[in-house]
């Protein structure tokens, strides 16, 4: 098993698959990311990330149903596993912990 640290795109894909719950596969994840964040990610990147996450044990997958637009080809559906969920929780808590330490009073000069 690879390390439990995940990158930004990995986190995003993991979240989206969680949100989609059932019916998460390559194209639906891609569309969802585009809708929710406006980011256009290439399908190859999505596949690579999902494969990696599955290797890490955060996702599991099975072959699902087919549709006409796919020329009768089946799709591979992905599901969030409990360790995937735990990782998301952990990532979030780290973020929040750090966020809360930002001083609300200080003004950060953004214009460097």
């Amino acid at each position: 098993m690879k390390g439990t640290n995940i990158g930004e795109l990995e986190e995003l894909v993991l979240l989206v698959i969680g949100v989609l719950y059932e019916g998460a596969y390559g194209v639906s994840v891609l569309k969802e990311i585009k809708e929710q964040t406006g980011r256009e990610v290439n399908i190859s990147a999505i596949h690579a990330v999902m494969n990696r996450l599955e290797d890490k044990g955060f996702l599991r997958s099975e072959m699902g149903g087919s549709s006409n637009t796919r020329g009768g080809r089946r799709k591979r559906n992905y599901y969030l596993t409990s360790s995937g969920r735990a990782t998301l929780d952990q990532v979030r808590s780290v973020r929040e912990k750090l966020y809360n330490q930002l001083s609300p009073s200080a003004s950060y000069n953004l214009s460097v």
Binding site: Y25, G26, V27, L30, K31, I43, H47, M63, S66, S67, T69, R70, G71, R73, R74, K75, R76
Partner: peptide, 14 residues
Amino acid sequence: LEQVQGDVHELFYW
């Protein structure tokens, strides 16, 4: 091949 080809085809029609 099946899932990948399916995905790109679906994306194409979309």
